[in-house]
Write a protein that binds this DNA or RNA. Structure first.
Lengths: 226, 226
DNA sequence: ACTGCGTCTTAATAATTTGTTAATATTGAC
DNA sequence: GTCAATATTAACAAATTATTAAGACGCAGT
């Protein structure tokens, strides 16, 4: 569930298209928000601050271009990626879109694979250059870019789930994460695995980093503490 | 107009279209070069090194795809932006175009404002991506100009895809690139190729450079590490 | 046009790592 | 001390990657 925390706002006045895109994006693990016109889109965008907005150009109430302009005006929404949805060869739309600050446009008819790969490419554009800062805690460093954990400058490699679990716990040192927290953030909300699975992963982390870094709060969950 | 020094090569067999585009681009301040077939285009491209080439797909002598391929082969032309000119709904052409290394496609009929805004968007893209011509990592040197990798001053030649893959991985040593990263940056966001393809290319690189330079992060991707 | 060569992709299968479960032991709050 | 929660271990299942070989394709030289 690597897309777990990425919010995408879809804006279109045709319910069919909304539903179609929603289905395809949810399948990829994105959090999908919906709006059926520009006004609604701006409102939701302000409240939810999605990473990406996919805007149909032609809509009642407020068209996509106007909505885009409104969004770009706002300081806290300025950085949001905006992609326009356009019919092929809609001259006016394409041009005005780029002028107004669109990051991409996607032409109808929409094909699932192209949709998702375009979105990935777009999202990468923002996340690529700003490296995830490595977290330093005590004599330990968690480096998300290289998927490595350093203990006293010794690199230790972790399998994916272990790394994600450790990564979660260290994201807020000292804070207790309940088993539910852990399940939903590392395994995703749909997939259900037994409770013992968490224990096993915790154990493997402890094997590598020492028993003392992760503390058990019996009846509640775990916390990372130095 | 700050377009004074930007050269654009237009390639089409229809004089009307050439003239039409030439007029519109000159108005924007670009330096416009013309060619009426692929062979001529390659020749002019080599001599003038334009920033951008707009290529019609369907042409006598040498079609646009072939011309594109030739241009991409040449080391000093490798970085030039190429946009294809395609008739509406030429699905195959579009895909093949991207396969061959096109940066965009523009569909006919051409409308002046779309043409110029697309071109601006394309050119903006390169001004961000000023790539380093040669990179030195450990006992290895990657020379993007000559498509050669030197290991202890021994030149080793790499086919295009392998080179681009290695080039991507070495662009940020230590950083893990996911399969998705790799697919979209080496193969492009529209073309989807099987996952095993990456493995095979990785393997070929390892055959030449040794098994240890590229590390596998299972479940995530690969990274270059010395 | 024919042929050979290098490149890219796919498919099939093997090898390996990772994730999960189940069974049993241990812990700690009450 | 009791009992539910957690720890531990090993075995199993699932997922991922490695490897190999074969075919497709374009290109070069004949």
């Amino acid at each position: 569930m690597t897309n777990e925390s990425i919010k995408i706002l879809l804006v279109d006045d045709e319910p069919d298209i909304l539903e179609f895109m929603e289905y395809n994006l949810k399948k990829e693990g994105y959090i999908v928000l919906l709006a059926k016109n520009g006004a609604e889109a701006v409102e939701i965008a302000k409240r939810e601050i999605p990473q990406l907005i996919i805007l149909d150009i032609m809509m009642p109430e407020m068209d996509g271009i106007e909505a885009c302009r409104r969004i770009r005006e706002s300081k806290e929404l300025e950085h949001i990626l905006i992609a326009f949805l356009t019919a092929r060869n809609e001259e006016y739309s394409q041009l005005a879109g780029f002028d107004v600050g669109a990051d991409d446009y996607i032409s109808k008819p929409i094909k699932p694979r192209i949709l998702t790969s375009r979105i990935k490419a777009l999202l990468r554009r923002t996340s690529f250059n700003q490296e995830t800062p490595a977290v330093q805690i005590g004599n330990m460093r968690i480096d998300r870019d290289s998927y490595l954990v350093y203990k006293n400058d010794e690199p230790i490699s972790f399998p994916r789930k272990e790394f994600e679990l450790l990564s979660l716990l260290t994201s807020k040192p000292g804070r207790v994460f309940t088993r539910e927290d852990i399940l939903s953030r590392v395994w995703g909300s749909e997939i259900v695995v037994g409770d013992r699975t968490i224990d096993v992963h915790i154990r493997k982390i402890r094997e590598k980093l020492g028993d003392d870094v992760i503390k058990t709060i019996k009846g509640i969950g775990y916390k990372f503490d130095i």
